[in-house]
Design a protein around this nucleic acid. Structure first.
Lengths: 115, 115
DNA sequence: CGGTTTATCAACTGATAGGTTGAATATAGG
DNA sequence: CCTATATTCAACCTATCAGTTGATAAACCG
């Protein structure tokens, strides 16, 4: 996957396990073991998911003795949400159809130009 | 990648080429060739990207002679945006720290229970 | 019909995702 | 120091991604 910020964020969100982890973290900090508990997979697998989330900037991690508490970071979510909202409202069908007509005309025009 | 709707949507968005395609489609319908034009990759590669977007429900495709016009579909964007917005607002740091204290206490308590 | 344009299908390739197991590291505490 | 707990590192496996090239399909046009 590409390593630009937005791609990293969306890629991190494209996995149910990671989304569940974020949902859990929205209720407050948690350790790796606490986060792993609900899942039917190894602790190491969860650790990897956390690394993905961290690389995407969606979580940060502290140090508390042997525990590495994770906390949610919302900045990338803001960015992602903004991107989506920019395109959420499509042109109306009416405009789309108009656009389609224009495209057809332009195509015909180009044929004239080349022929 | 998992094939649930939300994962498909986020995975489709996790690529700059596909996001650019969606951005272009927000301005109206376009054919595969038109969509491929700005990119330094084969038409087949773009065609594959379109298949990913279609599978995610982010575009739909018509039939106009040998052209297959693509149009943006916003429903999955709505869903994705809603998911993000649910977690965009994290607990305040104050609450996080309180939560952390509670966790520590609970840990101590469990140690007592087991010892 | 034969040729051109538009788009997809199919097979291949190199890189990465997401999981596994086993070993290593770091800290706390008797 | 020794051991238990929490977490990560490393090697490995399999499946999928994102791109390629070459062939194919479908519709138009002279």
């Amino acid at each position: 996957m590409p390593d630009d910020q937005l791609s990293l964020t969306f890629a991190a969100l494209a996995d149910p396990t990671r989304r569940a982890i974020l949902a859990r973290l929205a209720a407050g900090e948690a350790t790796v073991n606490e986060l792993a508990e609900p899942f039917d997979m190894s602790l190491q697998a969860v650790s990897k998911h956390l690394k993905v989330l961290e690389r995407a900037g969606l979580i940060s991690r502290g140090r508390d003795a042997q525990w590495r508490p994770c906390r949610l970071e919302t900045a990338p979510l803001e960015t992602a949400s903004e991107w989506i909202d920019r395109y959420r409202e499509r042109w109306t069908d009416r405009f789309d159809r108009l656009d389609e007509e224009i495209r057809k005309l332009r195509r015909t025009q180009e044929e004239h130009d080349h022929g």
